[in-house]
Amino acid sequence: MTSLTQNFNFAYLDEQTKRTIRRTLLKAIAIPGHQIPFGSREMPLSYGWGTGGMQVTAAVIGQDDVFKVIDQGADDTTNAVNIRRFFEKVCGVETTESTSAATLIQTRHRIPETPLQEGQIMVYQVPIPEPLRWLEPSEVETRKMHALSEYGPMYVRLYEDITQFGQIATAYDYPVMVNQRYLMRPSPIPRFDNPKLNMSPAIQLFGAGREKRIYAVPPYTEVKSLDFEDYPFQVETWDKACEFCGSTESYLDEVVTDNDGGRLWICSDTDFCRSRGKREE
């Protein structure tokens, strides 16, 4: 596989393509939360498997970057391993599992528990960028709705949830308003992570390869999860603690341990858990 590094450009994409993606990123940063179409390429991984995030990463990664990849919060899931080894192969950059040591973090479905810092870049893999998609299947229509800030239907949907279930029944990919202007999908992170998007010191870039869209949240930008005055946005809590580190404030995964319904709970963020020190092996 050493031939790959020799036969392909640094970070796989050619410089021209990387430049067009960087131009798109600049535009995206300038209009927080607004989806910018870009000439997304086929990557050597399937569309839907992180190609948008990979193209954004390829466009911004430099030789001095320290790169971290997580999927479901963990560095060791097969998809995270696969994307990390791809960039090791085509960039030869240093990789890490430590959130604070990383300059560039590509993620699927989670934001690390360790607070992000200035200078860090988060790259989110986005499957469906359009927050209005389940309300309106037509792209032509949803673009108009964004242009006119016509977000009433989304509020109606949330309201209908409350009348039907007594609460907003969206557990992940919970819609947010960015900079008081654009409705945005935060990618399928649990709503537990939504508050971390708000006023983050890091640059947050979102890439949807198959749908050919890029959007961004610049540092220190207001990101508000939609809610109502009498039904404020809430995140879920657990009455359990992490089996390994004892954390009660992180996002916990439920692990089935036997056939009799036995469960235990562990941190989804493996780096966070490890850095707190294992309580039990």
Partner: peptide, 15 residues
């Protein structure tokens, strides 16, 4: 790609 991406882990959202 998109149909088959359902094979990827989704346990965070499932949780």
């Amino acid at each position: 790609g998109f149909v088959q991406h359902l094979k990827l882990p989704h346990y965070i959202d499932f949780q």
